[in-house]
Amino acid sequence: MAEKLNKKASIRTTGKLDKKVVSKTASKLDKKAASKTTQKKAVITTNNLDKAQIKKIFDVFDYNGNGILSLAEIDKAVIELYPHLAKDKPAIMRAYKAADTSKDGFIDFKEFGRLIDLLHYYNELFKIFKKLDIDNDRRIDFGEFKKGHKLIGINVVPNKELKTKFNEIDTNLGGYILFDEFCIYAAKMKLISDIPQDTQDTQNSQEEIPQDVQNKQEVQETQTKL
């Protein structure tokens, strides 16, 4: 009798373990399949994807399976799925911040479609930014701006006018145009025509300049005129 009970217990335990192993294996295979599908199609924007397809990509990003994406998970997934985007870290960071509309530091499924579109958008902007950033220090000084200003649709010639334009983009008046400042200008001027609407809304909210910075700008403009 005791032997039969032991056998039954052993069978049940083995069965449960087998199910767990199968479940874990299936989960891994699903993620691998989704990853392969994503890589083959090189999906960047969500225009032609339905909710189920977006969910598959989300599951690949969600390494720990908790339903939300950290910056580390996004960074890792971009390296694996979109290696051509991985080296442009400022673009990834900008997309992550802009997509996180809840401001909780994570990207949930509702925000994920926006993240994918913004990764593409900011990557395209960063390509333009890098052409201006001659010394590759991830900021544009006035000398670099003078050499490449026509790349962003600025055709003024006089040095004073060019300096005024530079100061308009350099909103914190730090003497350099940072990528965040460049993105605000790019959205305003529509350097890329297919700007996502969500991005436009984000840029508009970020264009509000603190009063102390506005005062500095007014002083600089007055000095330039003098």
Rank of each mutant, 00 (worst) to 15 (best):
D88Q: 06
L81N: 13
D117G: 08
D108L: 01
P158E: 02
A99F: 07
I152D: 09
I128E: 02
S102P: 00
H149I: 11
V156Q: 09
P83T: 08
A99L: 09
H149S: 12
N172E: 08
E111R: 03
H84K: 11
D137C: 12
F126K: 13
I74E: 06
K110D: 12
V78D: 03
A98Y: 10
I134V: 14
Y121N: 03
E168A: 10
Y96R: 10
D75W: 04
D88S: 08
D137T: 15
L125G: 01
L85M: 13
K127Q: 10
L81Y: 08
L119E: 00
Y96G: 01
K110Q: 11
D108P: 03
K131R: 14
K89E: 00
M93N: 10
D133C: 00
D108M: 02
F145I: 04
F126Q: 10
E111K: 04
D117P: 10
E168V: 08
I116Q: 15
A91W: 04
F106W: 05
I154G: 13
A99G: 06
I92E: 02
L125M: 07
A98F: 11
L118I: 03
D135Y: 10
I74L: 07
T171V: 10
F126V: 02
D170C: 00
L85W: 00
K165M: 08
I116R: 11
